[in-house]
Write a protein that binds this DNA or RNA. Structure first.
Length: 1070
RNA sequence: GGGCGUUUAGCUCAGUUGGUUAGAGCGUACGGAUCACACCCGUAAGGUCACAGGUUCGAGUCCUGUAACGCCCACCA
């Protein structure tokens, strides 16, 4: 690094960032080693929420990864063995859809044209080509992940953990097979997740259909022909159903004698009636009470279906109070069907046509069938009426076509409570009743006052704490987790199955499978584990309607055998290898893949090499913090806790930090479709990575939303992009840091007595404690800033931490201290000590700021090392820069450690530098300075023109104030400054009363303006006196408020009153 | 429908167990090409803390209710 070239006056991130990135990368500073720096060093670990491999960096990533990097860099500098584990997620459907789309656009081929193997190959190809984009973007941001460890949820390390977990869960009876309604995309012929379904209002109709009652003795005679539904006589019998009948609504479906002839049900999807298996009414509904248990004839099919009572499904007030029940095609009906043990008739083919269960309508597209059915019902006189109806219809986000609820076989993880005996046998449940309970009990929902208490509690803590409830409430439902997806991109479900007509045919396969002969599939394994430890077989009897797994094959009748092997020593060919082996036994692998969240759930331990007992797992698991968005508390966080406990016995992290969601000015979340977000790479291009990061940190308050007004700008090249003025906050601050450092470098180099530190006594021989007040003050501020910033970070109060660091740097260091150093250096007044203090303060500031703005601070650090290599304060604050880096340092050749691994200011600050008295006095000086400036400004005194000032202070402070007078003189541009305990106001002087001082600014008088100013001040003081006096006159206050508070109020009143006297006198003399 | 959050200066937000006449950044106004920085420096103006009750000696802060906005979850025959 060419450190000593003069720095340009404006910080140029583009000139600095690539060089710094290379320096960090070459030095390997982000790499974590389980045994370095020392076995005793505490560990700090964050696993990155793996971004979607198809993804590009967006605002949410910029925020979340900035915050994680701040935590990581902070702890690395504190000497922790620090690991930030990076990686990407294969993101099942999202990735497959993207690749399918590009293939279709280029080659007009669907995945069915390509076939499974070829499509998966193409997706891998695509992933290798484009899958690192987001990683590269994270590097641009300066994220200090251990890139050597970068994982992918579909790589072999993760795949082994997936297979091992599935095997264990299957063995423990926690993975089961079942029917389930999925959101079926008939265009893509795949199930899509709930969150991939969007709802759209669609104008449709509500068809009211008559279901005639079945059985003898009901309604009019001749119900049998009507029951067939097709009979024209069906129409004849509905005598009173015409629109002209005013009594119809009051007693629909009754004949002239009031006997019930038919029930009317309403539906938006008439074709689903082909799969109806009941009509439900409310049990307390007087209209239909007597019919419960009878049957109706399903029109068009002639099937008889029961009338059942269901208070959950039926809303008495809605429509006729009768509901058709189609368990295979509606989620509510499905639940109802389960409650009543109803048959479930699937009427659809995967591509959305009516299947063989649809009788005459089989083979028709569902919408064609709908039209035909409506026409047939009308012809049969069974269509009561048709209403316009607007309803929310679920659409697939991928194909934009309407979703069909579709009943299919799926795999589930059981979340609920198990039979106690069963639960007790499962080691992974650690004595809990079930997986959901295991995860619920791991999280603390109580408030803890301190970090120590939290640690003692031993559970996972959420920040902000309220999100613990979101987590717990969702888990408390204990709904089974559907883990199968009808996709090709993902972890294939490690289950091979075979249907057997009888037990003998199974015995053959079994011999092949686990026989001890050479032909036994699993004998190819290297280890000596017994078959039971590496192979689990479960059976489902053909005649079991619940499809429950049993351990032994049914002695009679057909059944399906499900085989789950533990394939943990495989390689990338595992699927091919095992498929071939099992094929020889007549077994075929389940075509589905696992839910993406199944592998994400294992991320904190799979990335560390579990199920092997690796050094990484021992050192870096469990992690310290998980930082993520609230929308995946349930999908991801809960499942990580659950699998972490189940597999390892330990929750995967101690704290969960939930960051806010960035929204636009209208409060809408950033969405691609709205194009209301920003591209962090654009922001880095325009303002620099540090500006992006500092702004992000400043925004990270505890609220759940962050609003970010965006605006469009057009670059010189004509490209249009979205940005926000708020990033100027970060850019301006970086420029300030840059220039303050430039000034410091000039000052430090300009030393006639050699650079500070060159002789080892870098305070110029002057004990800092006796120097000018600004030295003691800024050093005390350095110490306090170190404490306060770290205190805020420890509470995940990023905005506060950034604000404190900024205030310290800009307000204290730049606006006050540097301004005072200027005159000292120029006047050679204790200049060496000023340089020493300046070098120390800048050193500490760069360290403190590094986690927020790493690039600029690292660059300036190298310059500071060259100019002032030794900058500790002997006896007061020793620094690691004062001695050469130890042998464990990463970069032995460098004269100084790079900032990225330099020591952070101590968490307890620098106790020997704390000087509250100096801070108090300096505050008074600041107040006096500001007061004089105000007078100058309001009188229009030109900045260059000095004013003369007389200050009256109590006699005991005269000496000390005379020593400190340079602060006021310099910063308020005061010429003659007289300090006199007996000073009197002079004519033409403006009068100020601050603290215990009276300040007279001479020869600036403008009677009218002065009167106005004094009167305003008087009004202000009177207001305060009224408030304080009223409070103290209140007997209840004096009696009940703490004595301390009362005493403070009395002191305040006295001080304000004495200031008032000064003002009154000045007014009188005017 | 269930849960959660927000409402403080023109804008975006702080305000730490209740205790000065409520703060910051941006924006605005005035002054400043002073040898670190105009992406800067100095100064100022700007607030019935959404509304209505209550608790308290004392409420931006705690409680109840109302309103508006927003997020998550569930559901809509």
């Amino acid at each position: 690094m060419a450190s000593l070239e003069p720095l340009p006056p404006t910080y140029d991130p583009k000139a600095v960032e690539p060089e710094i990135r290379r320096c960090w990368s070459d030095g390997g500073y982000f790499h974590a080693d389980p045994s370095t720096p020392s076995p005793q060093a505490p560990t700090y670990v964050i696993v990155i929420p793996p971004p979607n491999v198809t993804g590009a960096l967006h605002g949410g990533h910029a925020l979340n990864n900035t915050l994680q990097d701040i935590l990581i860099r902070w702890h690395r500098m504190r000497g922790f063995n620090t690991l930030w584990m990076p990686g990407t997620d294969h993101a099942g459907i999202a990735t497959q859809a993207v690749v399918e789309k590009t293939i279709f656009e280029k080659e007009k081929k669907t995945r069915h044209d390509l076939g499974r193997e070829e499509l998966v190959r193409r997706i891998w190809e695509w992933k290798e080509k484009y899958g690192n984009r987001i990683i590269e973007q994270l590097k641009l941001m300066g994220c200090s992940c251990d890139w050597e460890r970068t994982r992918f949820t579909l790589d072999e390390t993760c795949a082994r953990a997936v297979r091992a977990t599935f095997f264990r869960m299957f063995r423990d009876g926690l993975i089961v097979r079942g029917k389930r309604l999925v959101n079926w995309d008939t265009a893509l012929q795949t199930a899509v997740a709930d969150d991939e379904v969007y709802h759209e209002k669609v104008k449709g109709h509500l068809w009211h259909i008559r279901y005639p009652l079945a059985g003898p003795g009901f309604g009019v005679q001749g119900s049998a022909p009507r029951a067939a539904g097709f009979s024209p006589r069906g129409a004849d019998t509905s005598l009173n159903a015409g629109e002209e009948d005013p009594s119809r609504d009051a007693s629909p479906g009754r004949d002239r004698e009031g006997a019930v002839e038919y029930l009317i049900v309403a539906t938006t999807r008439p074709e689903t009636m082909l799969g109806d298996t009941a009509v439900a009414v409310h049990p307390d509904d007087e209209r239909w009470k007597g019919l419960i248990g009878r049957k109706v004839v399903l029109p068009l099919t002639g099937r008889e279906i029961p009338i059942i009572a269901d208070p959950i499904l039926v809303n008495r007030e809605f429509g006729t109070g009768c509901v058709k029940v189609t368990p295979a095609h509606d989620p509510n009906d499905y639940q109802c069907g389960l409650r009543h043990g109803l048959p479930m008739i699937n009427i659809l083919t995967p591509d959305g046509r009516i299947n063989e269960n649809g009788g005459a309508y089989a083979g028709m597209d569902r919408y064609a069938a709908r039209r035909k059915i409506v026409a047939d019902l009308e012809a049969a006189g069974l269509l009561d009426k048709v209403e316009d109806h607007e309803s929310d219809v679920g659409h697939s986000d991928r194909s934009k076509t309407p979703i069909e609820p579709y009943l299919s076989d799926q795999w589930f993880v059981r979340m609920g409570d198990l039979d106690p005996a069963e639960a007790g046998r499962i080691e992974g449940l650690r004595g809990r009743s079930g997986l959901a309970q295991l995860a619920i009990d791991a999280v603390c929902t109580r408030e803890h006052a301190s970090a120590e208490e939290r640690k003692a509690c031993g559970k996972v803590h959420f920040f902000p704490q309220r999100y613990a409830n979101t987590y717990r409430d969702w888990l408390a439902e204990k709904r089974d987790w559907c883990i199968s997806r009808q996709l090709w991109w993902g972890h294939r479900i490690p289950i091979w199955s075979k249907h057997c007509d009888n037990i003998e045919s199974w015995r053959d396969s079994e011999r092949n499978l686990i026989g001890d002969g050479a032909q036994g599939v699993l004998s190819e394994r290297r280890d000596n584990s017994s078959p039971a430890e590496r192979l689990v077989v479960r059976f489902v009897a053909d005649n079991d309607p619940t499809s429950s797994f049993v351990k032994d094959p049914p002695p009679s009748g057909g059944f399906t055998a499900y085989v789950c092997p533990l394939l943990e020593d495989g390689d990338q060919q595992t699927d091919e290898w095992s498929n071939a082996a099992f094929k020889r036994c007549g077994l075929t692998q389940d075509p589905d893949v696992l839910d993406t969240w199944f592998s994400s759930a294992l991320w904190p331990h799979s990335t560390m090499g579990w199920p092997d007992d690796t050094a990484e797992l021992r050192k870096y698991y469990p992690g310290s913090v998980l930082s993520t968005a609230r929308e995946i508390i349930t999908l991801w966080v809960a499942r990580m806790v659950l699998t972490g406990l189940y597999n390892t016995g330990q929750a995967p992290f101690h704290d969960v930090y939930i960051h806010a969601v960035i929204q636009d000015a209208q409060g809408r979340p950033f969405k691609k479709s709205l194009n209301n977000g920003f591209d962090p790479v654009d922001i880095i291009e325009m303002y620099g990575a540090d500006a992006l990061r500092f702004t992000m940190a400043s925004l990270a308050t505890e609220t759940q939303d962050i609003r970010m007004p965006m605006k469009k700008v057009r670059l010189e090249g004509g490209r249009e992009l979205q940005t926000s003025e708020r990033f100027e906050l970060g850019r301006n601050f970086c420029n300030k840091i840059w220039n303050a450092a430039r000034f410091a470098f000039i000052t430090l180099e300009d030393s006639t007595g050699g650079r500070p530190g060159s002789d080892g006594s870098n305070t110029g021989g002057t004990p800092v404690r006796q120097g000018p007040i600004e030295d003691r003050w800024i050093l005390s501020r350095v110490s306090r800033a170190a404490v306060e910033v770290q205190d805020a970070l420890a509470r995940f109060a990023f905005s506060r931490a950034a604000g404190l660091a900024r205030d310290f740097f800009w307000d204290s260091l730049c606006d006050w201290y540097l301004e005072l150093v200027k005159s000292r250096v120029r006047e050679h007044r204790q200049a060496d000590q000023a340089r020493a203090v300046l070098a120390f303060a800048l050193d500490q500031a760069l360290r403190l700021l590094h986690p927020f703005v790493p690039f600029i601070t690292e660059r300036l650090w190298s310059q500071l090392n060259a100019i002032a290599p030794r900058r500790g304060l002997p006896g007061l604050a020793e620094l690691d820069t004062d001695s050469p880096p130890d042998n464990r340092g990463h970069d032995k050749a460098a004269p100084c450690r790079p900032l990225v691994i330099a020591r952070f200011p101590p968490i307890e600050g620098w106790p020997k530098l704390n000087d509250p008295a100096a801070e108090r006095v300096f505050e008074d000086l600041q107040t006096a300075t500001r007061a004089i400036r105000e007078v100058r400004s309001s009188r229009g005194v030109p900045p260059r023109q000095a004013v003369n000032v007389v200050v009256k202070v109590p006699a005991e402070r005269v000496e000390s104030l005379r020593q400190e007078a340079h602060v006021i003189r310099r910063l308020a541009n005061v010429g003659e400054l007289t300090i006199d305990p007996r000073a009197e106001r002079r004519p033409n002087a403006a009068t100020l009363a601050v603290g215990d001082m009276q300040i007279f600014v001479l020869d600036v008088i403008d009677s009218a303006a002065e009167r106005k100013r004094l009167e305003a001040e008087l009004a202000n003081l009177d207001g305060q006196i009224a408030a304080l006096g009223g409070k103290l006159a209140n007997e209840a206050f004096v009696a009940r408020a703490p004595a301390q508070v009362v005493a403070t109020e009395r002191e305040k009143l006295a001080a304000v009153q004495s200031r008032r006297e000064v003002v009154v006198r000045a007014l009188a003399e005017l």
